[in-house]
Design a protein around this nucleic acid. Structure first.
Lengths: 385, 385
DNA sequence: CCACTTTCGCAACGCTGTTGCCAAAGTGCA
DNA sequence: TGCACTTTGGCAACAGCGTTGCGAAAGTGG
């Protein structure tokens, strides 16, 4: 922390949010994270200093200094040379994925799953165990501590940056405090982030499971690089994770992404939440009676509403219910989006900005480990930009 | 001191290309804009150097350097002293609103309206004239050039930073190119920003009218700071402007904020856009038959959907139709939001983060000049942070 | 083998915010 | 009235950032 004295007198009233003043250290951190991010997306192929300079807008010399620091820290390495274009060939720089690791922890209602991911986001170790999220804080903390310790031991005790923790919402990402987890009122107000941080001895980042999933899915090459997309998760419920401009959008109180109880049918059938005509209720009811096209259509209408409002490029579908009929949902949702886009001259349709006039609809790849992977990504995201 | 040319602060250091790399100039620009922003929100009361330091996280000495530059450029000035708290009293710094100005241009279907706003966002001059947006590019450009020139002359030719232009969408903010303005296909693909820039001899920022309105409304003290709110405009149509985290959210293609054709009634009555059950159609139909409570309820349901998805703090209502029955719409929408919030344990409800459990609903103040004011704000936003 | 091109590091530089120090300008008490 | 104390804010020296100038390294082409 900074060397500021603990008391802050005189400016007690009004007290607006502290601004993010940028000093030289922050500047270095920004550019370093930028270069690291480019090295990460470059992956195995790597990138030369001049390519990095071109993409960042920095001087080649600045890139040299930055990459020299990264190499000294073991985060990057030289990896061969490119073919010459008439002069000295460029030397290729590559991220060293094994230089640091991050823990991803998925606390689900009946299971704890944790992964150890390298800097490239690839899981190098994994564990899972049954868990009763309603068994109380101490039991959950103990289980988390045990599993993470075993995971780190199994991997040979590599350097770990921190732990990302994903669990069912609602919660507050900023303070790391849980809210009323549905059906488990005893968690309300529990400072899970700090408690886990003390138990694990690691920096902890806490977020909703749907947000973690979106972040994990966003790591796929198609979604990389400043993309905007919505991940719709249809399992026993319906939720969404929003990635806008390459960054997770959480909203002021980590409440963003509540998608399931969007009303798409005024005075429709009553939902479990008390409202009428929620997408979740309509969609799941259609699934229950086997009317898959209708379920996909309802989901598509809600997705179209979201797309209109947020102008996202892609819609990704996942979750247990989707995975049981992947193509049906994908095609059904895509049809609704295409129909809606055709009715309105959407900007990218007019500009011919792609093969289709509507945002692409795709199935989110990744199995049951997606949320844990994304949880690790919560930590890694802080390193890159 | 005077080695800096006076035009330097006009060009905010936005990333020139795809490279968001930050050099020292960008750092200075960032911190300068930060301090300017704080001075702006401080308004007439001003702020002391130490208060600025505390809120930015910068060293008092750094703030002194920055404010010295601002004073040398005429953008800030000393304005009295605070009461002493036992030592040397703090000297108050204040923004000099008249140091620079911005033009705001509202190109509507039947009217052109332009304002000259000072750094505080207050309009110091205003003009309006009839306009036929369908009369072709040359006529519109000529009208804009004439009105802006007259406006600047009337104000005595003060230093102008640039012109913000708001017009009916869709359009592309990034490239400054219009799309198919509804009913006026001849504008499709016209590079309005560059054309106007050449005509006016000023930097031009182009955006949708709803976005400009949201930005203008966001200048009100209640919305200042890093607020998140949605402005819903109900006039002859229904649109929205989104301010998330204190900044306008446009989406990747400036398509965000399409709110009116959100479907809230599956297979409902057909809308002019071709879909069925759009809020706009339902709401305006209710207004047409005099059923105001129903209109407000429908709008409220759509607003609730938006709030759930984006977790915004406030919902602001405006537009001609709202202004005809302001309290009716406000209360009706607020009721729906309160009912929905009560059904779900929203984060800020559990944490007691305010007088009410639901996001506040308020009427957007400001008359027919709101869009033009917001258009000027499009330019000024680049100076502050 | 030489001329040329291209990459990349060293050294000097300008600029940033930071730190140490001190004058200025008040309050409070003897 | 005078002195001690607190707080503000400027001056000067400083460390660290990216930038610039220049030269060595490492290729290609004639």
């Amino acid at each position: 922390m900074s060397s500021n004295d603990p008391d802050r007198p005189t400016t007690a009233p009004t007290a607006p949010a502290a601004g993010p003043g940028a000093n030289l250290l922050a500047l270095r951190g920004h550019n370093t994270a930028l270069v690291l991010g480019l090295l990460r997306t470059a992956g195995q192929e790597g990138a030369s200093r001049l390519e990095l300079a071109g993409r960042t807008g920095l001087t080649p010399q600045a890139v040299s200094k930055i990459t020299a620091r990264l190499r000294a820290d073991g985060l990057a390495e030289e990896a061969g040379r490119r073919a010459s274009t008439g002069g000295k060939p460029r030397t290729v720089l590559r991220l060293v994925p094994g230089a640091r690791y991050a823990v991803g922890l998925h606390l689900d209602r009946d299971e704890i799953r944790c992964v150890l991911a390298d800097l490239a986001g690839r899981p190098v170790a994994e564990r899972r165990a049954p868990l009763d999220l309603g068994a109380g804080a101490e039991a959950v903390l103990a289980a988390a501590g045990r599993e993470v310790a075993a995971l780190r031991d199994a991997a040979g005790g590599p350097p770990v940056l921190g732990a990302g923790v994903a669990c069912p919402g609602p919660l507050d990402h900023g303070t790391g405090v849980l809210r009323q987890v549905t059906g488990l009122p005893q968690w309300d107000g529990f400072p899970l982030r700090d408690a886990l941080g003390a138990r694990l001895g690691l920096p902890v980042v806490l977020d909703k499971d749907t947000n973690a999933a979106a972040l994990g899915i966003g790591r796929a090459p198609e979604e990389a690089g400043g993309a905007s997309f919505a991940y719709l998760h249809l399992g026993t419920g319906l939720g969404a994770g929003l990635v806008l401009g390459g960054a997770l959008y959480r909203g002021p109180h980590t409440g963003a992404g509540e998608f399931g109880h969007q009303v798409v049918q005024l005075d429709g059938p009553r939902c479990g939440c008390g409202r009428r005509g929620c997408v979740e209720a309509l969609c799941l009811a259609a699934v229950a009676r086997g009317d898959l096209p209708e379920a996909a259509r309802v989901l598509g209408v809600a997705a179209a509403n979201l797309v209109e409002l947020l102008d996202v490029d892609r819609v990704l579908l996942g979750g247990r219910t989707v995975q049981q009929h992947p193509e049906g949902f994908r095609d059904g949702v895509a049809r609704v989006l295409a129909d809606h886009a055709a009715l309105r001259g959407r900007p990218w349709a007019a500009s011919g900005g792609g093969p289709g006039a509507a945002p692409a609809v795709a199935l989110a790849r990744g199995g049951p480990r997606t949320v844990a992977d994304g949880a690790a990504e919560l930590v890694l995201t802080g390193l890159f930009r």
